[in-house]
Write a protein that binds this DNA or RNA. Sequence first.
DNA 1: CGGTTCAGTTGACGATGTCAACTGATAGCT
DNA 2: AGCTATCAGTTGACATCGTCAACTGAACCG
Lengths: 194, 194
Amino acid sequence: MTTRAESAARTRRALLGAAGDLLDRGGPDAVTLRDVGAGAGVSRSAAYRHFEDKNALLTALAADAWAAVAIGLDGILDDGSLTPESAVRVALESLSDLGRDRPHLYRLMFTAGPADHPAVVDAATRAQDGFLTLVGRFVGTDEARRYAGVLLAAAHGLTDLDLSGHLPREKWHADRHELIDLLVAMIARTPDLS
Amino acid sequence: MTTRAESAARTRRALLGAAGDLLDRGGPDAVTLRDVGAGAGVSRSAAYRHFEDKNALLTALAADAWAAVAIGLDGILDDGSLTPESAVRVALESLSDLGRDRPHLYRLMFTAGPADHPAVVDAATRAQDGFLTLVGRFVGTDEARRYAGVLLAAAHGLTDLDLSGHLPREKWHADRHELIDLLVAMIARTPDLS
DNA sequence: CGGTTCAGTTGACGATGTCAACTGATAGCT
DNA sequence: AGCTATCAGTTGACATCGTCAACTGAACCG
């Protein structure tokens, strides 16, 4: 037997799945509640039983994405085969790859509205703390915070620039992966971390 | 007397001004063609005489913003009182300040749709070339391109992270200006630019 | 001076987010 | 078991928005 709560939870997942598909395919504008309902096998305003409004639905998508990033970072933290430096590199490049693979979802993760929501803040904080630990193993806990900020921002900037087309190879003579590697190498070589 | 072409040009500027105001106040969703028309003293679909559609209007806004950035960089390039290092720092921080002052316009400049348009590409290219020259004076022309890419991406990432609320001071122990300074200082100290 | 171009207006249409009223099945209580 | 309340989901309706088509009138040009 499927209880009422179970079927409601399944519908909620179906709504999120349909919304994610539409987002990947056509960006936020393509995420219409009508199409989300159709994709989930329910109709129009069924989403209002699970989310306050359309924005809350997108916010939930962003929160799930941050949670997935946090889980990925946990995996990197537990991977003993990585040096501290390469662990940082893998973390940054996997975030950047998410941007490449799911650009609209990635953009949503860094959008002001959703980013203010508690659910997103919690998940993003978990991810950032994981990255902070990773960087701490790399440069030491004293300077970890500032360097983690620079690294995360640079990786995000490279990814975002690439998505908007402002990072053409011809111009900068490198792609986002090479520039991430360059940055991590720079930090590894910086002797004086004042 | 005001000729027809003059009044049309004035209307066009008024439309762009009204669109910019609405964008600053409430983001892209607040830019409705009806309100743009009202703000410009014309009505509803007058904008269609000057722009192909709403997206083209926003694209023109982004192109103007890039052009302004390029002009600002020209000023920095001509300022003899700046050292190469501080010129780079000033350039990056003024870009970041634009993000702080006009967040929605800033975001628009790095949005995929507009960024593909020739007018935006031209203006952005001019700005990026100016920055490239600035970085060339700083680290030498050989490695200028890669380091300019890293610097621009990092500054953009810091700005964008700050706008989305993902760069709280408590967490990273620094704000975007301090992290930009840190990055520029790191590059200045990096002895081996391989 | 007569016709033409063209900036700007108005009316209309489909799409969309959202709310209110409604339906029906399940959950819980007696 | 039976009655009632809850609540997921539906349908109808409305305001708003982008956009197009038809229209207007004044500046332009021969």
